[in-house]
């Protein structure tokens, strides 16, 4: 799937993560991660993001993830919500 419209899920509150998906005008995939625990967990978070993008077959889009200390299951939930919304064309 290509991200074709702007979609948001989650929030910037503590323990949550804000996922914003935007279309790109070239057919590339950009992943931008900001995390308050960047140093320790960036790799783990990136892996979760990659797995989720694979699951949804995302070919292109601007994926912006702003983490505020979310648990893995929260991150997965927000990614799944955003990607499902993108799929539905919301």
């Amino acid at each position: 799937m290509k991200i074709q419209n702007v979609v948001m899920a989650g929030s910037l509150e503590s323990n949550d993560v804000l996922v914003t998906l935007r279309p790109t005008d070239n057919d590339k995939l950009f992943i931008n991660l900001e995390s308050i625990v960047q140093k320790q967990f960036a790799n783990r978070i990136k892996k979760i993001i990659d797995d989720m993008l694979n699951e949804f077959n995302v070919e292109s889009g601007d994926i912006h993830v702003q983490d505020r200390g979310a648990l893995d299951c929260t991150l997965r939930a927000r990614l799944e919500t955003a990607l499902s919304r993108a799929e539905e064309g919301r």
Binding site: M8, S11, E13, S14, L18
Partner: peptide, 21 residues
């Protein structure tokens, strides 16, 4: 207490729902 953030997030999502970007 993050209330402003709640309001902003809610309104952004509502905007997207209304198909404005």
């Amino acid at each position: 207490e993050g209330i402003l953030g709640k309001i902003i997030t809610h309104l952004i999502k509502k905007t997207l729902e209304m198909d404005n970007d």
